[in-house]
């Protein structure tokens, strides 16, 4: 049985430049019951970052990710709350979540 997780992703502070100048995306992420393993059972922020990098990133990936995590200097907020409070990479996304990526870097 497969299902979908609907979330909103936003980019600010220059991050949108890496995504074709799109500031807001509505994503429908496939959720798997876990049997065939083609999609995650639960989506963490880490999975989302990877997904964005693989499927949506238009410009240079090194300006978005560093190894497997977000590039230092980029802040993430989930539903307008600092992701550090929510467990950073390990936070499990819920239906309707709004995830904001915002760059602290000079000039975006």
């Amino acid at each position: 049985m497969s299902n979908h997780l609907n979330i909103i992703v936003e980019f600010k502070g220059g991050m949108e430049l890496l995504f074709d100048n799109v500031t807001k995306k509505e994503l429908s992420l496939p959720v798997n019951s876990g049997e065939d393993g083609s999609a995650p059972v639960e989506w963490t922020i880490k999975d989302l970052i990877n997904h964005l990098k693989e499927k949506h990133l238009k410009e240079r990936p090194e300006l978005f990710v560093n190894d497997d995590s977000i590039r230092p200097g980029v802040l993430i907020l989930v539903n307008d709350v600092d992701w550090e409070i929510l467990g950073e990479n390990e936070y499990k996304l819920a239906d309707g979540d709004k995830v904001l990526f915002i760059s602290t870097l000079h000039g975006g």
């Binding site: 220059g14 430049l17 300006l63 802040l75 907020l77 307008d80 602290t104 000039g107 975006g108």
Partner: peptide, 24 residues
């Protein structure tokens, strides 16, 4: 910078980041 960004989010100000020579 983090405090500044969160202030902007809290207050709903929408900064415009002008790209510099080294942005890309």
């Amino acid at each position: 910078k983090k405090e500044v960004l969160f202030w902007n989010i809290l207050r709903g100000t929408e900064p415009v980041e002008w790209s510099t020579i080294t942005t890309f």
